[in-house]
Each structure stands twice: as C-alpha cells, then as structure tokens.
Nucleic acid binder design. Structure first.
Lengths: 197, 197
DNA sequence: ACAAAAAATGAACGGTGTTCAATTTTTTTC
DNA sequence: GAAAAAAATTGAACACCGTTCATTTTTTGT
C-alpha cells in the first residue's frame, strides 16, 4: 500500500548518502539503518542493490536532461557552447552522482547501460544533433550523425575522467576549459570538413 | 630469497586471471588458489590487493608505452594517426586490462592515479606533444600544451568508454573510427586556430 | 646439529550482497 | 468486531570479500 512512499523514501535516503559520502557508502545495511527500513524491505522494493543504483543513475541522467531543456538560444553555435557549459557544471556539481553513472559496474549482469539509460541518453544526443543540423546545413546526414556521436562520446569520456580526481593530479588545465576547448576545436574542424564534402 | 620469483609468479597468475575472466575475479583467495601460495603470502608480498592491482595497471601502461615507441615515421601527421590506431587497437586487444586502469578505484585511498602512473602517462603525452610541435610550429607553447592535454584526455575518455560495452549498445559507430575521426577533426580545428593566433 | 631469524600459513574478524523461514501487519470474510 | 487469509516486513544466516596476526614451517648462521 505505502509501496510508492517506501520506494520514494529509500531513494531519497540513498541520494543523501551518495551526495554526502559517495556511492561507496551506499550499502544495503547502511541504507537500511539510515532509512529505518530493514534490509529485506529494500530487496522487496528493488530486487537487488544493482537495480537500486540503476534507478539512481536514471534520476541523474534525467536531471541533466532537464537542464539541457532549459537552454534556449536562437544561435546554434551559442546553444552548443551553452550545452557544454551546462554539462561541465552539472558534472562538477553532481560529482558523486555522475561518478556513479560511469564508475559503477553491475556485479551480476554485464558492463552495459540498461535500455532505459540509452533512451534517456539518445534524447540528449538528439538535442545536439538538432543544433548541428542548423550549424552545418551542408553536412550530409550520415557524416553529421557520426560527428555528433563522436563529440558526445568525447564529452562523456572527459566527464567520466572529471568525476575521478585523476585529472586534477594529472592535468593542470581547468576542467570547464577542457570542455570548451574541445568543443570549439572540434566545431572548427567540422566546419572545414563540411566545406570539403 | 625467492621473493622476486614469488612476486613474478603472482603477477603472472594475476594477469592470466584478469585476461581470461576480468578484474572482478581477481580476489585474494582466487589468486591464492590459482598460484598455490597462501593468502598471507600475497599480503606479505604486496601489502594489499589495491597495491597488487596498481602494479598490474602499471604494467598495462608500460606495455602501451612500448607500443608507442615502435611507431616511427617522419611525417608528424602520419605519426599522430598511427598513435591513434595503436592506441585504439591496444585498448581493444587488452580490454580487461585497460578496463582496470580506469574502472578500478582504490578502496582505502582516494580516486587518484598514483605518482608512478602519472610519470608513465606524461612520457606518453610528451610523444604527442613532440609531434604537435612539428605539425604546428606557429602554435605558442602554452596553447600547444593545452591542446595536447585536451586531445589526450579525450582519447583517454573515449578509451575508458571503449572498455565497457556501454558504447557498443549505444553507438553503432565503429570504435577505431571514433578515435580516427576525433583525431582528424581535432587536428583540423587546431590547424585553423594556429593560423588565427 | 642446533638456535635464531625469516617467511609462509590459514583461521578469524568485520564488512559486503543476498535469501528466506518466521513474524507482523493488513485485508478479507463472516 | 473477531477470526481467517493474504500480504508485507523482518533480520538471522549464507557465501563471499579484504585484511590481520598468532602459529607453524623454512631458511640461515654458527
């Protein structure tokens, strides 16, 4: 009966743990203690901890998506730059959550994103593709598709590094600067390629 | 006395486990069973499992570095392309090992690469920077530095995604193609930027 | 050959995800 | 409203994990 309420409660408690301490502290027992529900209840509600974390990750992706939706500018170029900023900021603000999206790997199933993930992600890629269409009208659709995919993957890849402190210790280049520099160099490259084909 | 031999033996046994089954199966007990040494011996030799995995990761980075060293071409442009190919191939060939480099996070210490890692990595970045120097002689050294860093981080980021099957399920773009496309678009972009400044 | 030092051992500790018989709560039936 | 049936909740128990350290075995020095 109070099923939804319990789920909501557990998810919120989990999100607090992740935000404050990181996903490493999100264990069944700790979640149980923090929420007041027993370990068994967590398993009744979510099946297993992997699934619980998948739900958390979906929420994170959803949250990013809605930030993207707020970006509204006529200029496609400006819009893409804003996406990059929004993205970089989001990743930094939600470090622990974004870290989870990439660096949590399911124990029992494979190293894959779930179908639900993919749907959320592809809606975001479509936003970028739309901007590309405006910015590079001459670019053929298959070439455009590839170039959007590659850009997205790069940003994804960079962001996955941003969440760990690996970059801090390695590169002295500022983190938002990385995204911006990547985007602009890449877009410039595409502009040249557009004219060639 | 046979200390080195034991370490070598354990490392090799570990490498076999990782190659065949993945880092998830590399546990102290399984390594103990596979090698014939007791759990305690592993700890005598390596202190803890984190450290053992760090050593494994160092070997992986070293192996990549030596592949880079084999690349020899006069043309800087061609050389960079070969680096990209070598890199993509290496990552695919050594999926389980490369996966470890990124997706293994130390339990007790922080989410950082160790100093030894960094030294290995920066020698590789220097190879790229050298090629950049030849390819873009007009580019100021600080700009060049940033652009090399960003490219490297992108390749790193992409590769960290390549090791998981997240990309397979998400993008239909071929994996080596991603690296090549990224490189060429990026290099084209830099060429334009070089002339502007 | 024996004592001393060094190395190897594996049971034991506290943690993890997960299961499921036993309990408690809720709903239905009369 | 009480008894019976159904559903939900519980937490001890299981098999694993990394790690420790008293005990045993091996090696070394004399």
């Amino acid at each position: 009966m109070a099923r939804d309420y319990i789920q909501e409660n557990l998810i919120n408690t989990g999100r607090t743990i992740i935000k404050e301490k990181g996903v490493e502290f999100l264990t069944a027992r700790k979640l149980s203690e923090a929420s007041g529900y027993s370990v068994g209840t967590i398993y009744n509600q979510f099946g297993n901890m992997d699934n619980f974390i998948l739900i958390q990750n979906y929420l994170t992706l959803d949250s990013l998506y809605h930030r993207f939706l707020k970006v509204k500018t006529d200029s496609a170029y400006e819009r893409l730059n804003m996406y990059a900023s929004v993205f970089a900021e989001f990743v930094m603000e939600n470090r622990n959550f974004w870290f989870m999206v990439f660096n949590f790997h399911l124990k029992q199933s494979e190293r894959t994103f779930s179908i639900t993930y993919l749907r959320r992600i592809s809606t975001m890629v479509m936003l970028i593709e739309k901007s590309f269409k405006e910015l590079y009208p001459l670019l053929k659709s298959d070439k455009r598709h590839v170039s959007v995919q590659v850009l997205w993957i790069c940003l994804f890849g960079v962001s996955s590094l941003l969440t760990t402190s690996s970059l801090e210790s390695y590169s002295k280049v500022e983190q938002t600067k990385i995204c911006k520099f990547l985007l602009n160099t890449y877009l410039t490259g595409i502009k040249v390629l557009e004219k060639l084909v």
